[in-house]
Amino acid sequence: MMLILATLSLLVWLGLAFAHGRFWQAGPMLGPVPRAVRPVAGTWPAVCVVVPARNEAATIEDSIGSLLAQDYPGPYGVVLVDDRSEDGTGALARGLASPHLHVVDGAEPPAGWSGKLWAVAQGTAEVARLMPGTPGTSDAAYILLADADIIHEPAHVATLVMKALRDDLDMVSEMVALSTESRAERALVPAFVYFFQLLYPFARVNQRRSRVAAAAGGTILIRRTALARIGGIESLRGALIDDVALARRVKRSGGGIWLGHSLLARSVRPYPGPADIWRMVARTAYVQLRQSPLLLLATVLGMALVWLVPPAAALFGEGYARLAGLLAWAIATISFLPTLRRFELVPFWALLLPAVAAFYTLAAIGSAVDHHRGRGVVWKQRAYRERISTPP
């Protein structure tokens, strides 16, 4: 049995390494565009940033401040939707007192809406209206959906727009740099990015002929006409994995999308301990599996075959089983190194990848247990107990 399992695991890893969209590579990165190749002044499209924020007092001033400090040559504005915050988020944002900033007091989400998407819907509706003191937002050609815990370098928005214009894209999204300050973050956060790339290889996402579609919710630049074409934010209203749902709809409607890594934006949301990362993963893990016990079982068995069998065979197998286990473990370890280099971490962390994979698998099981115990998904002090998932 060990021989069979080790052989299957090695075959899977050979397929992942050489026939799965080069998921393990560093991936495309979006850096600043030299001024010499930028469009001339007066030709830049209007852009409005929509930021949904719920209880983000710790980060809102730095995040919105970085958006207001953008070096963007065209019409530009920022809409912050205060999503029923209880910590003074809206008041702190208003204190920034910029003519380019409009703060909206969000309403309670209607039935069937996730809180974040309802806030985004209110923000995009505000973009469509003439907002006094916010030049350019009434006719914005692009909307940038940004989380409230992201810090943006001054050239960030211009770089996103340039990418969209140069490649005629309807949507440009980035995986922003994530924090690795704590030991738990260094052990677990790089693997989160690695597993995301395993699920959605960026090279395939960026191919127009491929059906693979995904986005990273921290920063999503979308053409307003593309958003209207898919029915607006309302078409996603029940999605908890809203970024992937949005990418799927845009790509299926014929739009070009791009997903890569940002060199100009970083998240400042901390995850000090393993429990914080567990909650982050468990929030949507079972939703990703369509709240299906069968898909959960298949996932657990698949994770065991891919991540646990190689070290088990290498350490306890004999003969060919041990050799197959060593080879599979080596491929898995080497495939993680580009991700570690991007996070500027030492290769040692790659040896812990099987244990990290086990952690994520247990978090997915915990997500399912929470769902079937009636606890559902809890995020930002809101509970979603009804059966909602990524729209088709």
Rank of each mutant, 00 (worst) to 15 (best):
W13S: 06
A111H: 13
A36K: 15
T333C: 10
L16M: 12
L199K: 12
A239Y: 02
G325L: 02
A164W: 04
V268H: 09
M303L: 12
A357S: 14
I388R: 10
Q288K: 14
Q25I: 06
A36P: 10
R94Q: 13
I388C: 11
W44P: 00
A187P: 05
A141R: 15
L352P: 03
A53F: 06
A216G: 10
L315M: 13
M162S: 15
G133T: 10
G95T: 14
L259D: 00
L353Y: 07
V103G: 01
L340P: 03
A355H: 06
S66R: 04
R204P: 03
R279G: 04
I222N: 00
V300L: 13
T390I: 15
V161M: 02
Y76Q: 00
Q122T: 08
R54F: 08
T299V: 09
R385S: 11
W258H: 14
G238V: 04
L178T: 14
A383T: 12
E234H: 13
L259E: 00
L67R: 02
F202P: 01
L80H: 09
W24K: 01
L289F: 08
V250L: 15
I230Q: 06
T137K: 04
A177E: 04
A324C: 12
V281W: 01
F343Y: 15
L264Q: 06
L11K: 14
L144H: 06
V378I: 13
W44K: 00
A41N: 14
R342Q: 05
D276L: 08
I151E: 03
Q381W: 09
D168L: 10
F18K: 14
E56S: 11
T159E: 05
L315P: 10
T124R: 02
L326T: 13
P45Q: 12
P39D: 12
E344S: 15
A93M: 05
T333I: 09
L169M: 10
V377E: 08
P272F: 07
D167W: 12
A158N: 02
V78Q: 00
V300S: 04
R129G: 08
A93D: 09
A228M: 15
V300Y: 02
G238F: 08
R385A: 09
L11D: 07
K380A: 11
T124A: 03
G21P: 06
T124G: 00
L169G: 02
P32F: 14
H100N: 15
A357G: 10
A158M: 04
A6S: 11
L295F: 13
G42R: 15
L352N: 07
L30W: 02
V309D: 05
L160A: 04
G302W: 03
A57R: 08
M280H: 11
I150G: 00
I388K: 08
A111W: 10
L297C: 09
S210R: 07
E61T: 13
G317H: 09
V78I: 13
P32N: 13
G319K: 09
E86H: 10
L295W: 14
L263V: 05
L326I: 12
W349V: 07
V309P: 05
R322V: 04
A328N: 09
A313I: 02
G374R: 13
T59L: 08
Y200Q: 10
L130K: 10
P310R: 11
M162L: 15
A17V: 12
S367Y: 02
P110H: 12
W258E: 03
R186K: 13
L67C: 07
G115E: 03
K116C: 07
